Measured scan of single mutants.
Amino acid sequence: MATADDFKLIRDIHSTGGRRQVFGSREQKPFEDLVDLGWLKRSSVDSRATHYQITERGTSAAL
């Protein structure tokens, strides 16, 4: 179930172009929650960072 923080984060991601790069596993937790909701997808993972991209469902949630 989505929380107020989830909606705040997806709106922030949407307003800044729909993509986010995250460093460190602790910082990934809120983004992984949005992946579980179907609002974000992991577009790539490298040794230092994970890249996320907003989905259509995420765009709808952000509006």
Rank of each mutant, 00 (worst) to 15 (best):
M1N: 12
M1K: 14
M1A: 12
M1C: 12
A2G: 11
A2F: 06
A2K: 04
T3C: 06
T3F: 05
T3K: 08
T3R: 07
T3W: 04
A4P: 13
A4N: 09
A4M: 11
D5I: 07
D5E: 13
D5T: 08
D5Y: 09
D5K: 12
D6N: 14
D6S: 08
D6A: 11
F7V: 07
F7A: 03
F7T: 04
F7D: 02
F7R: 05
K8Q: 11
K8R: 13
K8N: 10
K8C: 07
K8Y: 08
L9Q: 03
L9M: 05
L9W: 04
L9D: 01
I10G: 00
I10N: 02
I10A: 02
I10Y: 01
I10M: 03
I10V: 06
R11C: 09
R11T: 06
R11A: 09
R11Y: 10
R11S: 07
D12L: 11
D12H: 09
I13Q: 01
I13V: 07
I13F: 03
I13Y: 00
H14N: 06
H14P: 00
H14K: 05
H14M: 12
S15I: 11
S15P: 01
S15Y: 10
S15C: 08
S15N: 14
S15D: 12
T16R: 09
T16Q: 11
T16L: 07
G17M: 05
G17H: 05
G17C: 06
G17P: 02
G18H: 02
G18E: 02
G18I: 02
G18C: 03
G18Q: 02
R19I: 12
R19M: 12
R19F: 14
R19G: 09
R20E: 03
R20Q: 05
R20P: 04
R20A: 12
R20K: 08
R20L: 08
R20D: 03
Q21V: 15
Q21T: 15
Q21D: 10
Q21K: 14
V22S: 04
V22F: 03
V22G: 03
V22K: 03
V22T: 04
F23N: 09
F23G: 08
F23R: 10
G24E: 08
G24Q: 08
G24T: 08
G24S: 09
G24A: 09
G24L: 09
S25C: 07
S25T: 13
S25R: 09
S25Y: 11
S25I: 12
S25G: 10
S25K: 14
S25F: 10
S25N: 12
R26D: 15
R26M: 15
R26E: 15
R26N: 13
R26H: 14
R26T: 15
R26W: 13
E27K: 11
E27M: 09
E27S: 09
E27W: 10
Q28L: 11
Q28N: 08
Q28M: 09
Q28S: 08
Q28W: 05
Q28Y: 06
Q28I: 09
K29F: 04
K29Y: 04
K29N: 05
K29T: 06
K29R: 11
K29H: 05
P30A: 09
P30T: 05
P30S: 07
P30C: 06
P30V: 07
P30I: 07
P30Y: 05
P30K: 10
F31K: 01
F31G: 00
F31P: 01
E32L: 09
E32K: 10
E32P: 01
D33V: 15
D33F: 11
D33L: 15
D33K: 15
D33C: 11
D33Y: 12
D33T: 14
D33E: 08
D33S: 13
L34D: 00
L34H: 01
L34F: 01
L34W: 00
L34R: 00
L34C: 04
V35Y: 03
V35A: 04
V35Q: 02
V35C: 08
D36P: 03
D36E: 14
D36N: 15
D36C: 09
D36H: 13
D36G: 12
D36A: 15
L37N: 02
L37Y: 06
L37G: 01
G38P: 00
G38F: 04
G38C: 05
G38M: 05
G38N: 04
W39T: 00
W39K: 00
W39I: 01
W39M: 02
W39G: 01
W39A: 00
W39D: 01
W39S: 00
L40W: 00
L40T: 02
K41P: 01
K41G: 06
R42G: 05
R42L: 10
R42S: 07
R42T: 07
R42Y: 07
R42Q: 07
S43H: 13
S43K: 10
S43C: 09
S43N: 10
S44P: 08
S44E: 12
S44M: 13
S44T: 11
S44I: 13
S44R: 14
S44D: 09
S44L: 13
V45G: 09
V45I: 11
V45K: 10
V45Q: 11
V45D: 08
D46M: 06
D46L: 06
D46I: 06
D46N: 11
S47Y: 10
S47T: 11
S47L: 11
S47A: 13
R48H: 14
R48W: 12
R48S: 14
R48L: 15
R48D: 15
R48M: 14
A49V: 13
A49M: 12
A49G: 15
T50I: 14
T50L: 06
T50M: 07
T50R: 08
T50W: 08
T50F: 09
H51W: 15
H51K: 08
H51D: 12
H51F: 12
H51Y: 14
H51I: 15
Y52M: 01
Q53T: 12
Q53K: 08
Q53L: 11
I54V: 04
I54N: 01
I54C: 03
I54S: 02
I54A: 02
I54F: 01
I54Y: 00
I54G: 01
T55H: 01
T55E: 02
T55F: 00
T55V: 02
T55Q: 02
T55I: 02
E56P: 12
E56I: 09
E56Y: 08
E56S: 09
R57F: 10
R57E: 14
G58K: 00
T59G: 04
T59R: 11
T59P: 01
T59L: 13
T59C: 09
S60Y: 13
S60F: 14
S60L: 15
S60E: 15
S60I: 15
A61V: 10
A61Q: 05
A61Y: 04
A61P: 01
A62I: 04
A62L: 04
A62K: 01
A62D: 02
A62E: 01
L63A: 06
L63H: 08
L63W: 05
L63C: 07
L63P: 01
